[in-house]
């Protein structure tokens, strides 16, 4: 449904995927699309077997303090309570297009998905020598359409 260079519409907002990275977690893989909206702002669109999430990069100043990287661990970001619901080690298996950061095929990333109470999602991504946070919301697959 999501394809590089093909604009999509998500609940009335338009995004253009300009970069696609594929992460392999052993039993399957998921895609991370770097998308630009009409104003040129960048978003990560995660597409994982029908689970869609749209996130923006979280500035370092907003990273949660004392985050415990474990399933079920609770934390708070921008005043929103989150809980770690998924932890996954994945290897970057393919990259294509443009990204806001350097991604290397074969690099292993440790992902923690944190879920809020009302459809919010935050992701903590760790790799050799780096860490990044993003925050956004889950999207209903039926709300994603090519435009």
């Amino acid at each position: 449904m999501v394809e590089l260079g093909v604009q999509i519409e998500v609940t009335g907002q338009f995004y253009l995927p300009v970069g696609q990275a594929q992460f392999d977690y052993g039993r399957g893989w998921w895609d991370e699309f770097w998308c630009l909206n009409e104003q040129g702002d960048g978003y990560w669109l995660s597409v994982d077997e029908g689970d869609y999430a749209l996130e923006r990069t979280l500035p370092r100043s907003a990273w949660p303090k004392g985050f415990r990287p474990a399933l079920g661990a609770a934390t708070e970001i921008n005043g929103i309570p989150f809980r770690v619901t998924e932890a996954e080690t994945a290897t970057c298996s393919a990259v294509k297009g443009e990204f806001p950061e350097a991604l290397a095929v074969g690099e292993t990333h440790l992902y923690f998905d944190l879920t809020g109470l009302d459809g919010e999602i935050a992701t903590c991504e760790r790799w050799d020598g780096g860490e990044a946070w993003s925050i956004g919301s889950w999207i209903d697959a039926w709300d994603v359409r090519r435009s």
Binding site: R27, G28, W30, D31, V47, E49
Partner: peptide, 8 residues
């Protein structure tokens, strides 16, 4: 596109 490896 995300998918899984079909297998038996």
């Amino acid at each position: 596109m995300s998918t899984a490896r079909a297998s038996s």
